[in-house]
């Protein structure tokens, strides 16, 4: 199911992505069309299958969201792509290299924001960002990065004094200071208040505007909808669907839930043909159907439905 959808989607996204990225695309060697290409990825922890035959393509310049509940295999998948974890089976290529053998030059082209932040309590924001810039051959200007993540008021603050949201912004600053072609964001806004999430989203949109390819994991549906060009729904280590947020929502939109109430109690039917059902009900009750509701699924319903079916 997902591979068919996916192929249809690929051409469209590639065309769109080509605009923003320009010359950067040509550098990725043998896999010029994909920033990330995964085939048949399998990862086991003892007996447990954490990733179960996953296929994935991410194209240059797009924001791809991997959406799924806790324990679905998001972080395992992303950490395999980042070179932190070994895979048991499958082919993986990330900007032209196998992450299991990624060298330092390869690491210079990716940016990683891990799920958990690291402790560097006694160093200031500016010291850390300037220091990390020194690791990369072609870094962004550290002072520009400080401004772009909105930490200019905190540049001389020790990191121990930062709030959770500010620390996350620092994590992102350290992830992008090397001017990466591909940026991994693993659950970047978990624990944010709504205001902090909004401003974080603006930052991600600005990065996308610069042509950075972004792989984002999240368990927030609205986050995937707000940021992603395409969303992959993952559960139990398998990709259930890959599509644009709108089409994912529209996927089952023709399905509707019809509810009504009579002397026997509540009734509910899920149908592809709600109008016909309502007409039948109208005949059955001789006009008005008591407490009739016709409910179209939201993206959330679609998502939860997928998880239930999987």
């Amino acid at each position: 199911m997902c591979s068919g959808l996916f192929t249809g989607q690929a051409d469209r996204v590639r065309t769109r992505a080509g605009r923003g990225t320009g010359t950067r695309d040509g550098e990725s060697g043998g896999n010029a069309d994909t920033a990330v290409r995964v085939r048949g990825l399998v990862k086991r922890y003892g007996e447990r299958l954490a990733v179960d035959g996953l296929d994935l393509d991410i194209f240059p310049g797009e924001v791809f969201a991997l959406l799924g509940p806790n324990g679905a295999g998001k972080t395992t998948t992303v950490e395999i792509l980042e070179g932190y974890r070994r895979r048991d089976e499958g082919e993986v290529s990330v900007i032209g290299a196998d992450p299991a053998h990624g060298d330092l030059a390869w690491r210079a082209r990716i940016g990683i924001v891990l799920q958990s932040t690291a402790e560097t309590a006694e160093l200031t924001v500016a010291e850390l960002i300037h220091h990390f810039a020194g690791y990369y051959p072609d870094p962004r200007d550290p002072d520009d990065v400080i401004v772009s993540v909105g930490l200019e008021d905190k540049r001389d603050a020790r990191t121990r004094s930062l709030s959770g949201g500010q620390r996350r912004r620092l994590d992102v600053a350290l992830g992008i200071v090397g001017n990466p072609r591909l940026l991994f964001l693993d659950e970047p806004t978990t624990g944010f208040d709504p205001q902090a999430r909004r401003s974080f989203w603006d930052l991600v949109r600005a990065l996308r505007g610069d042509g950075t390819t972004i792989l984002l994991t999240t368990h927030y549906l609205d986050e995937a909808q707000a940021l992603a060009d395409r969303v992959g729904v993952i559960d139990k280590g398998r990709l259930l669907a890959v599509d644009t947020p709108d089409r994912l929502g529209g996927r089952l939109a023709h399905r509707a839930r019809v509810r009504w109430h009579d002397d026997d109690g509540d009734h509910e039917e899920i149908t592809d043909t709600p109008t016909r059902l309502v007409t039948e009900l109208g005949d059955r009750y001789g006009g008005e159907v008591p407490q009739l509701q016709v409910i179209r699924p939201s993206l959330e319903d679609v998502y939860l439905g997928m998880l239930e079916e999987s």
């Binding site: 330092l104 210079a108 690291a118 990390f132 990369y136 090397g178």
Partner: peptide
């Protein structure tokens, strides 16, 4: 882990 993810 963070350092390992950089070209340091």
């Amino acid at each position: 882990k963070r350092l390992r993810g950089t070209p340091m």
